[in-house]
Amino acid sequence: MDAVQDRVIRIIAEQALLDPADVTPQSTLEELGIDSLGLVESIFAIEEAFDISIPFNANDPSASNFDISSVGSITAAIEDLVAQKTA
């Protein structure tokens, strides 16, 4: 579980030009300075890293069933998707 979180944090930290130590599960993308383009790029990087497909539409992030409210919620959603893949 922590492995997924560490990898997500590394990806998001790289996008935000921050040290991974400065990104916590409680961090929101807004706090980290990630805009809509940065979010789309982060999602692409996460999909590539975990070989999953994330149902995210930039027109309506809330309708995508992929909770982007914090790094922790993103991690949880990715853990679900990774679990579905191996199931």
Binding site: V40, I43, F44, F56, N57, A58, N59, D60, A63
Partner: peptide, 20 residues
């Protein structure tokens, strides 16, 4: 597709439920 601004079902400009 990469930009994630495309609709999978229809183009609904100005409609609250538009999705790309």
């Amino acid at each position: 597709e990469g930009l994630r601004v495309m609709s999978r079902d229809a183009c609904r400009p100005f409609s609250l439920n538009r999705n790309g």
